[in-house]
Amino acid sequence: MIRLLRRYFYPSWIRSGRVVIGLLIVLAVLAAAILAPVLAPHDPAEQDLMLTFQPMRLGSPFPLGTDGLGRCVLSRLLHGASLALKVAFIAAIGAMLLGAALAYAAGYLGGWVDWTIGRAVDVWMSFPPVVLSLILMVGLGTGASNVILAIILVDWTRFCRVLRSEVLVVTRRDHVAAARLLGFTHWRTLLLEVVPATIPLLITLLALEMGIAVVVEAILSFVGLGVKPDQVAWGQMIADGREAIYQAPANLLAPVAAIFVTVAGFNLLGDGLRRTLDVRLVEGRG
């Protein structure tokens, strides 16, 4: 009877408030990033040393004020969004591809492949992630593509570990064995019987990883090991705004708020998707 009740209570992911709010935030940030050249009142690099540390005032030419070099904070914030999102999307997808490929290999093939990949992940995860990414940045040099590479090289383990256990569970299900008995090749079995069952988890991890990538990019930019100095990045804005916290607090608070909202959006989306897509949470086994 309970199974019947559950079957009738068929939740669709859109019904989750978390997913809707998270998606709206991410879409808003994405729109800001794409439309930054149109929306921004000024060129983000345009300096006016006569108008430094202007206060926040709606209706003025500088709604969020200006920084120490007289650059428009709002314009820089909008342009910073495009870098943050670019890094978030590419780095998260890159980490997913690397981590997932190894996770499928480890979980499906098992045996010594699993053992080797598992130990590699162990070793990799024993480095503190921030330190590892800083070392990588020092070695690779600054620049947006190097930030992305550093995030991929650090965070693939997150995907690998979580996904591997899921792949292991799915691979042990009888329908995977049945597919092999019916003459499916390994490749086909993996692609048609194992991968589809792990897609919800993958999407969830991807959304969460995007939030993490935004934070890591901000950290690297904050310490000056992120993008090149002529590119706008939120982390860099925080580093600059730190010194003028009393004259123009918006210089610090605006990028902090931007990071907070973006990461919250990704996390809400990820959490919402986990709750609605994860079969174990929705149906149980009863």
């Binding site: 329908h175 597919a179 069952a197």
Partner: peptide, 13 residues
Amino acid sequence: QMVFQDPQSALNP
């Protein structure tokens, strides 16, 4: 061919 015990696990949902 084999018929598995638990159709919950044997049929790809």
